[in-house]
Amino acid sequence: MKTVLITGASGFVGQTLAQEYLNAGWQVNGLGTSQNNPMADANDNFFWTSADTSLPGDWQDLVAQSDVIVNLAGRNIFKRWTKEYKQAIYNSRIQTTRNLVDAMPDNFGGQLLNASAVGAYGDRGETPLFETQPYGTGFLAQVCRDWEAQAQKAESKGATVAIMRFGVVLGPGGALAVMSRAFRMFAGGPLGSGNQWFPWIHLDDLVRGVFFLMEHNAQGIYNFTGSVPIRQKEFAKELGRVLHRPAFMPAPAFFIKLFMGQLGASFLCSQKALPAALETAGFRFKYNTVASALTQIFRS
């Protein structure tokens, strides 16, 4: 039986991915800060370790036992960015990845599938963002740059490294649960002008993409974003449609920045990220449009 180590396994993406590995007959070693995980009681092949992975510890012994490592660890960015919380966002990603690589034996022959984000590109307006585009500027871009650099050091330990730059993950939970609240209260609408490009991916396609990279022993950088990009105001319109709510209450840019600070400013960034590397490798999306993704999520 093969073994996968998933950091951040109690999170929105991590839980779904862990279940898919269990369904495929793998042993899953889950890592996170929660004291317990109900999947450990429900599945004989799921083992939970509670740890702060930004710090070295006994949890690192799990690394050498792994055929595949999926690194999803990172503090939630959908909170107000105080100076202290920004440091926590940074450390939870960079330090965890550094500790994973440090724990790899010199002849580690497994795979590291490392999360990142399209925030790596910064605010890029109308520019189509393929994986070959340079890093942008800003806090999230710097986090992603350093995060990816730590992951790529695993190649010196013999690992195959794939970087997955996630767009906003759409599924029954996560960011979509937060965004839909305003619409349910008849207060939904675009953020700022709404003309900014909104990078997205359905949770099912994200999980399928992880397995695709694993099965192909892929390496390099991959945008995990839907194949048909959409502007934020069109996304708001589609969300209002599936919730049977209006989408005409825009949140002015100055209001977002005033009350949400740098986090709010990041919501106004435009990132027309395209999944060129995944599609060139042969991956085919199940949900090509936001309309099909949102319809499936809310009708389910």
Rank of each mutant, 00 (worst) to 15 (best):
P275H: 06
I163S: 01
P128A: 11
W147Y: 08
N43L: 04
G125N: 12
N107V: 08
Q95R: 05
A103T: 08
Q60L: 11
R124Y: 10
A182E: 03
V178M: 14
G261T: 05
L129N: 10
G167V: 04
F283R: 04
V207M: 03
G125K: 12
F259D: 04
G32R: 03
V28N: 01
G30I: 09
M1K: 13
L243T: 09
P38A: 06
R241Q: 14
A88S: 14
V4Q: 09
F267W: 06
G282L: 02
L203A: 05
A182D: 05
E126I: 06
Q296I: 02
V207H: 02
F254Y: 06
F186I: 04
I77N: 00
L274H: 00
A277R: 09
N71L: 07
P275N: 09
F78Q: 05
A24H: 14
G30K: 07
A24Y: 04
G8M: 12
P134E: 02
D204R: 10
E238L: 12
L239R: 02
T160R: 09
A64N: 08
M39Q: 13
P128I: 13
G264A: 04
G122N: 12
Q15M: 11
L55K: 15
H216L: 01
R145Y: 14
A162D: 03
I163H: 00
S116C: 07
A103K: 05
D123F: 12
A115H: 02
T7E: 10
L294R: 03
M179C: 07
A187S: 07
K79R: 15
A265F: 03
G119S: 11
Q35D: 15
D205C: 06
N288P: 00
I256R: 04
P56R: 09
G189R: 00
Q150V: 00
V118T: 13
Y21P: 06
R299E: 14
D44R: 13
W26M: 10
I201P: 03
F12D: 05
Y85H: 10
P199A: 10
G189M: 01
V242T: 12
L22K: 02
E84G: 00
Q133P: 00
Y121L: 13
A162Y: 02
N195D: 15
Q271W: 11
R284P: 02
S227N: 15
Y90D: 05
L113C: 07
A182M: 11
M185W: 11
A159K: 00
Q150R: 07
Q35F: 06
E238R: 12
I230C: 07
G125Q: 13
K257Q: 14
N195K: 14
G189V: 01
Y85R: 05
R181E: 15
P199Y: 05
Y135M: 07
G189T: 01
T295N: 14
E131S: 04
G188V: 01
G32A: 08
P229V: 07
G209I: 08
Q152W: 12
H216C: 01
D61F: 06
K86T: 08
G220I: 07
L203T: 02
R184E: 15
G173V: 05
N217F: 05
Q65K: 15
P56Q: 12
A117L: 04
A64T: 10
N23V: 06
L278Y: 08
V118S: 11
E126H: 08
R124E: 13
A281C: 09
L206K: 00
Y287W: 10
V63T: 11
R299V: 09
G209M: 13
V242P: 09
A236M: 02
N107K: 15
A154E: 04
A103Y: 07
L112D: 03
N195V: 03
K272H: 15
A73D: 02
S66I: 08
